[in-house]
Amino acid sequence: MQMVAALAAIWLASFFHTGEIKLLLALLLSLAATIGSDFLFARLRGKPFFFPSAAMVSGIIIALLVSPWYQIFLTGLLAMLAKNFLRVGDRHIFNPAAFGLLAGGIILGQNISWWGVSWQQLTNYPLALFILLIPFLISALRMRRYFIQLAFLSLIILFGASLLDPALLFFVAVLLPEPMTTPAKPIVQLAFGVIVALLSLIPYFPDPLLFALLASNMLFFKR
């Protein structure tokens, strides 16, 4: 729920920045798609009722990264499809939001715009950038995935990426360190971060970062 609160703060900042009411409708649609399909797919698997915090996280991420309503809806469905059915035992293989985003983008031939996490430039919106960085506290300290984040950031900056790019920071803070699909051991985390950075150099449509993350999820999957 801490990540839900942090993501909600980022979304609110983006909502007030744009001032477009349709973004609220898009968020509600995204949450309906992820929460509704998560419940449905879990019931099909015979699972009991649960609080949909993971689906809420995915729903807010999707609402922040894509725009057209049909892309939001399809992405939410695909994300929960991956969470519920692309799994071994108790663990799903892929980061659900990343899977939904990439698969939805490919199916629809649409880019992932990262609209809600691209405008927080330090020179113009320092407070908004600070809000964007809050998830780092959760992912690095509580989830203990800082080795992944450090390894990835170190390498990607060497490749020429900007450390202050808000979309990149959001990826590192929220998507990259998802605990269910990333390694726990420090040395393996370092390897994971390096591989994601290397794979992100491949100009994969529609998004090289998400492709790199999903490929690494699969390479490092351990039951």
Binding site: R87, V88, I93, L102, I106, I107, G109, M218
Partner: peptide, 28 residues
């Protein structure tokens, strides 16, 4: 079951990869 699921995941990614080649070209 485990092998089937992993193979299924690989197949899904392979389809996505093939789709990306065609859709990436059409998006130019």
């Amino acid at each position: 079951m485990n092998t089937k699921v992993i193979l299924g995941g690989v197949a899904v990614l392979a389809v996505i990869g093939v789709g990306a080649v065609f859709l990436g070209r059409s998006s130019q």
